[in-house]
């Protein structure tokens, strides 16, 4: 709920005289330490607010940019069943974006501002979406690996210290599990299909595996925001820990698919009780982040174009609403709301 955030922000900046500020900080620290949730109207440090806006905006942007690589295949889905599933999935991504934008707005940052920053390239989205979807099998690999990595990242966010973000993540995680399973099922069908279909599935896994591992972000010792985010309990586990979890989950899943993971160094480490895996090419990650991935330009262009081409719809709806509310009172469609 966004009500009251503006006054809260004003209060947070006005109260910088030592005494009250220190008391507010102490109350905030105590709430975080006690694993309580911070809610929109509570006082919070400016840096906490800024860090949440950055992370939630990036997360929301990722959801709506993430619609593009998969939507690319809707018209070419091989059956009506697969088409209906893919449409539902892409529609979910739009929904997830909206949950997250709403949650971000409770911090006093407007929707328009967030979209403007995305369009201007001043806020990021996950670099995974800058890779192309070359074959139908990519839809499966995205569901299994990309959504699988996202779930591994997101499940701990359901316990994030900021209430609205945590609540949005609960809803999102419930819905993501369908995304991952449909992808896995799709790959399984291809893997058990003709040799050409099997090869297509393997090729998609080969291309999506490493970028999926990069989704967890840079190694812990090189991650700019990790330590502070963990202290604030926005993040609950380190990038490397989550990445390891993901690898451990995927290895047996790949076996069941009859597909291999493109890393000769993956092997079970008896001592650690986990899988060892090969080194990640962080130069590629940095390059994609800088805008030099295969599809950076295309994704942002399409996003801007969709926004511009939808402008007349937004304007028309606003004019319609003004016309109908100025005359006969509020346009309430079906009358009596009773608590």
């Amino acid at each position: 709920m966004a009500a009251g955030t503006a006054s809260q922000t004003a209060q947070a900046t006005a109260g910088s005289a030592e005494g009250p500020e220190a008391a507010l900080q102490a109350a905030f620290d105590a709430a975080v330490a006690a694993d309580e949730r911070i809610e929109p109207r509570d006082w919070m440090p400016d840096a906490y607010r800024a860090s949440l806006v950055r992370q939630m905006a990036q997360h929301a942007h990722s959801e709506i940019i993430g619609m593009q690589p998969e939507a690319n295949w809707i018209t070419r889905a091989p059956s009506l069943r697969r088409k209906a599933i893919l449409m539902a999935k892409v529609q979910d991504e739009a929904g997830h974006g909206l949950y997250l934008y709403s949650a971000a707005e409770t911090l006093g940052t407007g929707r328009e501002e967030l979209l403007d920053k995305l369009h201007a390239g001043r806020q990021r989205y996950s670099s995974i979406f800058n890779y192309p979807t070359l074959t139908w099998a990519d839809v499966g690999a995205i569901g299994w690996l990309v959504d699988g990595a996202a779930i591994t990242n997101q499940v701990p966010l359901c316990r994030c210290s900021y209430g609205p973000y945590a609540r949005a993540m609960v809803r999102i995680c419930k819905e993501e599990s369908f995304h991952q399973r449909q992808g896995y099922e799709l790959l399984l069908a291809l893997s058990n299909g003709t040799p050409a279909q099997h090869e297509m599935a393997q090729d998609a896994v080969n291309r999506w595996w490493w970028p999926s591992l990069m989704m967890f972000g840079p190694p812990d010792d090189a991650s700019a925001h990790s330590a502070q985010s963990m202290a604030w309990k926005i993040k609950r586990h380190s990038n490397d820990e989550l990445r390891q979890r993901f690898v451990d989950i995927c290895v047996p899943q790949a076996e069941a698919l009859g597909l291999s993971l493109p890393d000769p160094d993956i092997r079970w480490n008896e001592e650690r009780g986990r899988h060892d895996f090969g080194a990640i090419d962080w130069t590629e990650f940095q390059e994609v982040l800088k805008g030099n991935g295969p599809c950076n330009e295309q994704r942002l262009d399409q996003r801007r174009r969709a926004h511009e081409e939808g402008a007349w719809v937004r304007e028309a709806a606003a004019v319609y609403a003004r016309k109908h509310t100025s005359g006969a009172g509020p346009a309430v469609p079906n009358g009596k709301a009773t608590a």
């Binding site: 929904g95 949950y99 309430v332």
Partner: peptide, 25 residues
Amino acid sequence: THAGSLHAPDAEMALRNARDLYTRR
């Protein structure tokens, strides 16, 4: 119970958007 929030130009569109956003399942 409170499900979340959304933007809409008027009440009717808010209801339609709410249906699409919060009751897809």
